[in-house]
């Protein structure tokens, strides 16, 4: 199969890669860039474990074709935080007890991050909407919403 050459910004760095066109963004990130924080839970856009930020918006990377991100900007959890410091969201997830099994956590963080970038002072309902596509079977979401709320800058 003819490979497609694509360039995009990944966690702040410009990258170029050749990919078979029938690869999902999810697989491109996990296999070609070893960003295994991006998880597969269903492969149908229904669980949100594979959420990444694409051009400032949270999307399920299992429903995006890898070559579609040509010239785009992609952020995964590996791109959160700066200079080895945790992002405020990550800190609050830890403090508030928002992490249990951790499988939904990277996707949750990214959905929250995309929200806060657009809307730095969201209401509790807006937070719930932002993570409505991220299923979690452990926490009952309460501590996740609490953590996102706690991370809102004064």
């Amino acid at each position: 199969m003819e490979k497609v050459k694509i360039s995009f910004k990944l966690n702040g760095e410009n990258v170029t890669v050749e990919t078979p066109p029938n690869k999902r963004l999810l697989d491109l990130l996990r296999e070609d860039f070893e960003l295994t924080s991006v998880k597969e839970g269903c492969g149908e856009g229904e669980c949100g474990a594979c959420t990444v930020i694409l051009n400032n918006e949270a999307v399920t990377s299992c429903t995006v074709l890898a070559p579609q991100v040509d010239n785009c900007e992609v952020v995964t959890v590996e791109g959160l935080g700066k200079d080895g410091e945790l992002d405020k969201l990550q800190e609050k997830f830890i403090e508030e007890g928002a992490v249990q099994c951790g499988y939904c956590t990277p996707g949750m963080l990214l959905s929250a991050k995309a929200l806060l970038e657009k809307n730095p002072h969201p209401s509790r309902d807006e937070i719930k909407t932002a993570i409505e596509g991220n299923l979690c079977r452990c926490t009952g979401y309460k501590k996740i919403v609490d953590a996102i709320e706690a991370s809102i800058e004064e």
Binding site: T36, S37, V77, E78, I94
Partner: peptide, 17 residues
């Protein structure tokens, strides 16, 4: 602080897959 929490928020925790 939960023992596993830091690795999990960093996406570093290794699940079998």
């Amino acid at each position: 602080i939960k023992k596993d929490a830091v690795d999990k928020v960093l996406g570093k925790a290794k699940f079998a897959a």
